[in-house]
């Protein structure tokens, strides 16, 4: 097993709301006590719906935001509090590709300068000729013609812009990429080009990926380990195939059942979804208000992650009181 590259331990992020009428309800726990490990060369996925905290977590890992609790270690170094040179060194190792490449690329910079910028920011002593050579190399590698070097982002299509964003992220030769919904803004016929490119690049360069997405099928294609989040907390984590093949937590089951697929299914079990996402809670399981298996205890005590699954490998864990008592029946109780 490869050594851990990124270790996230007990990370939390709370936001304080100023203008909330009711006292005592002015804190939002966007991310709450999240821990997982990304090993070198591995692809880890984070899945969840809007409000699950997955993008806040990505921003924290990229250190665009600071965590309010917990620690983040990258190659053994604590980066949660890193500053100055340490932070700079971290950003040489970890780069990001965001969902909306139109807003991720400066509209007033030419493609050549956009791709070269990370290296220039890092104040390397690379000569301009060498930078040009590397820009051309990367453009070719992501499947773009070197002729677009002098274009502006608005002259490119969505797929081309996302390729530019990928090229830029590789300019400083990072060891890890954080991919936040990298293909969800792309058309289906362009999506597979970008997914194949990401997988090829990973194989060639031994890259480690942390991929955030709401589409489970895409996560299944790219990742080997999956973290499922609900309202800021991890509800289940484990090997991707195991989680999607035999989801344990009631929320994961609902998510898998609700994902569109190219087949017709009669009588899908959507009973667990008879209500909408509620707000975060300090007491009990965040999913309890929607969960058909919920008991009194679920509303009072936050469940901890415990080993689950048929194979009971230490890697597959879910946070559910009901799961610990008995294995859930296939259909929810009436």
């Amino acid at each position: 097993m490869n050594p851990p590259l990124l270790e996230v331990r007990g990370v939390g992020k709370t936001f304080v709301l100023r203008h909330q009428r009711r006292r005592g309800h002015n804190i939002v726990r966007a991310v709450d006590n999240v821990s997982f490990v990304v090993r070198k060369g591995e692809s880890v996925g984070i899945a969840g719906e809007s409000g699950s905290g997955k993008s806040t977590l990505a921003r924290i890992i990229l250190r665009l935001d600071r965590p309010t609790d917990g620690e983040i270690r990258f190659a053994g170094e604590d980066i949660a509090t890193a500053e100055g040179h340490e932070l700079m060194a971290y950003r040489r190792q970890v780069q990001a590709v965001f969902q909306n490449s139109s807003s991720a690329l400066s509209p007033r910079m030419r493609i050549r300068d956009i791709i070269a910028e990370p290296l220039i920011v890092q104040q390397s002593d690379t000569s301009p000729a060498e930078i040009d050579r590397r820009v051309d190399d990367l453009l070719g590698r992501v499947g773009l013609s070197p002729q677009i070097r002098l274009s502006f982002p608005h002259e490119l299509s969505g797929g081309q812009k996302q390729r530019v964003a990928i090229a830029r992220s590789l300019m400083v030769r990072p060891s890890m990429l954080v991919l936040d919904e990298p293909v969800s803004a792309l058309d289906v016929s362009v999506r597979s080009q970008v997914l194949n490119l990401l997988l090829d690049l990973q194989e060639e360069r031994g890259l480690t990926y942390l991929m955030i997405a709401h589409d489970l099928a895409i996560l299944r294609h790219v990742t080997t380990y999956l973290v499922i989040m609900y309202l800021g907390r991890i509800v289940e984590q484990g090997p991707t195939e195991e989680i999607l093949g035999a989801p344990q937590h009631p929320y994961t089951r609902a998510l898998v059942a609700a994902s569109p697929r190219l087949e017709r299914i009669e009588n899908r079990v959507l009973a667990a979804l008879d209500s909408e996402v509620t707000s975060t809670t300090d007491d009990g399981c965040a999913y309890a208000p929607r969960c058909p298996w919920a008991e009194a205890r679920c509303h009072e005590e936050v469940p901890r992650l415990m080993v689950v699954g048929e194979h009971a490998t230490a890697a597959h864990m879910a946070a559910c009181h009901a799961l610990q008592a008995v294995s859930l029946s296939e259909t929810p109780p009436a």
């Binding site: 299509s157 289906v188 016929s189 999506r191 080009q193 099928a217 299944r220 294609h221 190219l262």
Partner: peptide, 25 residues
């Protein structure tokens, strides 16, 4: 046909590479 094979699936055997439609719309 290309549209169907260009998307990853949630179930069934996992394909290593997706079918790729060349070019852009």
């Amino acid at each position: 046909r290309a549209l169907m094979f260009a998307v990853p699936h949630l179930h069934g055997p996992r394909t290593k590479r997706l079918y790729q439609i060349r070019g852009e719309p």
